[in-house]
């Protein structure tokens, strides 16, 4: 038996926490707006992993976890399209997409 099949839930949870932390780290540290969007996608995908894991391994959980994951995938796509449209607008106005260079509002 492979080592990672011995504790399936724990391994999956470690994976999803790691992805979540990477996502938050990306959102906080990156300056490029598209990179920040990638961080958001990572966070949402870690949520998907969590829900699918729990739906599979928790008693009486049913399929609601899987349903949540499907909806989150659709929503992530919608959000990404809106965000990319806004980033395009930023590029047209400012000529670059770095968030630390946006200073037309105070602070």
């Amino acid at each position: 038996m492979l080592w990672f099949t011995k504790y399936p839930v724990e391994n999956l949870l470690i994976l999803s926490s790691a992805v979540f932390c990477f996502g938050i780290y990306t959102i906080v540290t990156r300056k490029n707006a598209v990179s920040i969007l990638m961080g958001v996608e990572l966070v949402l995908n870690s949520v998907n992993l969590n829900f699918i894991t729990f739906s599979q391994f928790v008693d009486n959980a049913g399929i609601s976890g899987n349903m949540v994951a499907i909806f989150v995938i659709v929503l992530a796509a919608a959000e990404a399209s809106v965000a990319l449209a806004i980033i395009l607008g930023i590029y047209q106005n400012f000529g670059r997409v770095d968030v630390d260079k946006l200073t037309s509002l105070r602070n």
Binding site: V43, E79, I87, G89, N93, F94, V99, L105
Partner: peptide, 17 residues
């Protein structure tokens, strides 16, 4: 447009959390 970008970054991040 800058307000919109700031809004979407905060909003998407915090709803994921």
């Amino acid at each position: 447009i800058e307000a919109s970008l700031k809004y979407i970054i905060y909003g998407a991040g915090s709803s994921g959390i």
